[in-house]
Write a protein that binds this DNA or RNA. Structure first.
Ligand code: NAD
Ligand code: NAD
Lengths: 212, 212
DNA sequence: CTGTGAATGTGAATTTTTTAACATAGGTTC
DNA sequence: GAACCTATGTTAAAAAATTCACATTCACAG
């Protein structure tokens, strides 16, 4: 089928599919049907087939999907069949947790630069990486071919960090700080805010109680 | 209007509205129109009015919304006008970052218990909280009236952590580990996985390049 | 106290997303 | 190598979410 516009929800589900498929692979399962994958992901099976159809035909009729092949195909479809160089701005509690998180490089997002403006932090080594002054961002973005910027500064500093990154020629920004920022329209911008999961929890738990 | 089923996307947007409204409040803005709020949140203005209509009528026709009142109303609607006691299982890199994150208590999610199974960690004090052995979970859940469990263990331990939490009588679980888990249907379960934001970034950046 | 302007709340229209249904293709068996 | 079986890919239907459009309501001015 191959299509141009991909729903955001599809991308999120593809992430889940990769996760579950990897688990199947570890268990030694070679082939899986959309039905079985759907159950493990708690979605509808035609949802899975539809999601995959956006990118191509990856299954074998009458058989199902070869687990390893499907993982490879999804990764290629998403553009994570290669490494992405990332720069992290703001090495505080969260920034450190992310730097120490092995999953980033395992998934192909390599954090190659860590920046902070605090003179006490500059020069410190975290997880084998030297913390560099934010002023050097433009130079480093070029030197290290950074494409994605990760913002983990306090919220009131997020816009400034974004400005530096944009000025330095970054292509996309993932903002972990709880503040809206503005960037030119050609820059990809994603907000990470897990509090809405907590809000959803609070809402649904209270709603369930209210039902009794 | 007041309705029963609330879309997940609405909850996520309400979180954004609170964030932006708080900023307006800090700037000294008392009244805001759905149009202006919409612009700041990058959504359609009737989207905002629709989202709010699920819960009631909070505005004044011809005027707009009183910022402080609206914040209060949204918080009450979501059930975050009171404190929620949380327990965190797995005090590693991420667990520590969360324990040190002030925003949790500021938003009403109070982490009252921190659990780990590593004997070297048990007894350690993090952010004024003693790390307790996971075996004590059932006793502590009751003692501290914990309602929400936060899982930050390695993925292969998430199911076990969930089992402990469910057995102890928790009401909801937020799973930060990248693995699907199963819990009884009356337990609320939310997965936090910010990698899909990175996937979306990779996908869109590469797509944009491909367009040129 | 009435008229005016402005922005809400909502029903209707549109768009998007999800689910169902099934014809089709590929593997397997005899 | 034909017939059968199974699960895909796709088209059509249903459901859900978003946007439009405007009648309604409130504040305020004259
Ligand atoms: N800690 C968490 O678990 C957590 C969770 C979710 C979101 N967040 C958000 O992530 C952000 C960081 O949180 P944190 O707990 O790590 O805070 P933190 O105060 O520990 O770290 C912030 C870091 O940013 C640096 N910084 C400030 N301005 C900067 C600038 N202009 N350029 C470069 N560096 C700059 C500071 O020196 C500091 O090292 C906050 O916006 C927070 O709301 C944190
Ligand atoms: N570090 C990050 O930035 C980050 C980001 C996103 C998701 N995650 C996920 O969060 C989880 C934790 O990551 P981390 O980097 O903190 O790992 P970590 O290894 O530093 O911490 C895991 C902790 O869990 C404890 N633990 C293991 N089994 C347990 C059990 N049964 N009961 C209680 N405690 C137990 C361990 O002793 C350890 O302290 C992982 O699943 C990871 O994939 C981490």
């Amino acid at each position: 089928m191959k299509s141009e516009h991909i729903p955001k929800a599809t991308i999120a589900r593809l992430a889940t599919y990769i996760q579950v498929l990897s688990e199947f692979k570890r268990e030694g399962t070679d082939v899986v049907s959309s039905e079985r994958l759907a159950e493990a992901c708690s979605v509808n099976s035609s949802q899975i087939r539809k999601d995959l159809a956006y990118f191509g035909e990856f299954g074998v009729r009458g058989v199902g999907y070869y687990v390893q092949d499907l993982i490879t195909s999804i990764k290629r479809s998403l553009g994570i069949d290669r490494a992405w160089n990332c720069g992290l701005v703001g090495v505080g509690n969260l920034g450190r947790a992310l730097l120490r998180h092995r999953e980033f490089s395992r998934k192909g997002f390599i954090i190659r630069g860590a920046f902070d403006c605090d003179p006490y932090k500059i020069g410190e080594i975290v997880e084998g990486m030297e913390i560099v002054c934010s002023r050097q961002l433009p130079a480093k973005v070029k030197e290290l071919s950074l494409e994605i910027g990760i913002i983990t500064t306090p919220p009131e500093r997020a816009q400034r960090a974004a400005n530096y990154l944009v000025g330095a020629g970054i292509k996309g920004i993932i903002n972990f700080a709880p503040s809206r920022i503005s960037v030119p329209s050609h820059i990809l911008l994603e907000y990470v805010d897990f509090f809405h999961h907590f809000y959803a929890a609070a809402f649904h738990i209270r709603f369930a109680e209210h039902q009794e």
